[in-house]
C-alpha cells in the first residue's frame, strides 16, 4: 500500500508521516532519508528531524539518490517512510550543479519509487507543495518544479491514500 503525504513547508507533514508509519504493525520500520548534509542549515535540519524520530524504532537508511539500490537491504515484513521527494529530486537532478533532463529524472524517480513500493508492505511518501507562490523562476527551477509536479501526480495515481497536511492537520484528498 502507498500512502502519499503532501504539504507546504513546515506544515507538519513529516510528523504525520512518522505517525502513520508508527501506527503500522510491520516487523521492520525503515526511514529513508534523502537529504544531503551540505551546509550548516541542512545539518541543523537533519538534526531536528533525527530528534523528532528519536525512540520511534526506525532504522534509518541514508540514500540521497538512486533509492532503488537500497532494495536488497530491505527485510521481509517491512514498511518504509520516504522523506522526501523534493530532496530526492534535487539530488538526482542537480548532480554536480548541472541540471539533468527533467522528464528523464521524473520518470527514473517514479520507476525507483514503484520498485521500492513493490518490495515493502507499506510505503509512506512525503512530498512538498512548492507550487503556489505564483513566481516565475529561471529554467532549471521551472524544470525542477515541473518534474516534482509530474512525480507527485504519477505516484498519487497509484497511491491508496493521499493526504494534504495543513497546519498540522491531515486532510484526505484521495
Amino acid at each position: 500500500m502507498i500512502t502519499f503525504i503532501y504539504g507546504s513547508s513546515s506544515s507538519g507533514k513529516s510528523a504525520y508521516g512518522e505517525e502513520r508509519i508508527q501506527g503500522l504493525n510491520h516487523e521492520n520500520k525503515y526511514y529513508l532519508a534523502t537529504m544531503e548534509a551540505y551546509d550548516k542549515e541542512s545539518i541543523k535540519r537533519i538534526e531536528r528531524h533525527r530528534l523528532l524520530r528519536k525512540d520511534k524504532g526506525f532504522e534509518t537508511i541514508e540514500c540521497p539518490r538512486n533509492i532503488r539500490e537500497i532494495i536488497p537491504e530491505i527485510k521481509e515484513d517491512s514498511c518504509l517512510l520516504l522523506e522526501c521527494l523534493s530532496n530526492l529530486l534535487a539530488n538526482e537532478m542537480f548532480v554536480d550543479d548541472k541540471p539533468g533532463d527533467y522528464l528523464l529524472c521524473a520518470n527514473k524517480i517514479v520507476e525507483d519509487i514503484l520498485s521500492l513500493a513493490s518490495r515493502v508492505e507499506d510505503l509512506v511518501i512525503v512530498s512538498n507543495n512548492i507550487f503556489e507562490d505564483g513566481l516565475r523562476y529561471e529554467k532549471p527551477t521551472q524544470d525542477y518544479m515541473r518534474a516534482l509536479g509530474l512525480i507527485n501526480s504519477r505516484i498519487c495515481q497509484d497511491a491508496d491514500e493521499v493526504y494534504e497536511v495543513v497546519v498540522g492537520i491531515p486532510v484526505r484528498i484521495k
Binding site: S8, S9, S10, S11, N129, I130, F131, E132, D133, G134, L135, Y137, T141, M145, V166
Partner: peptide
C-alpha cells in the same frame, strides 16, 4: 496566509 507553498 499560508506562506509555505512555494519554492524554497
Amino acid at each position: 496566509d499560508e506562506i509555505g507553498s512555494g519554492v524554497v
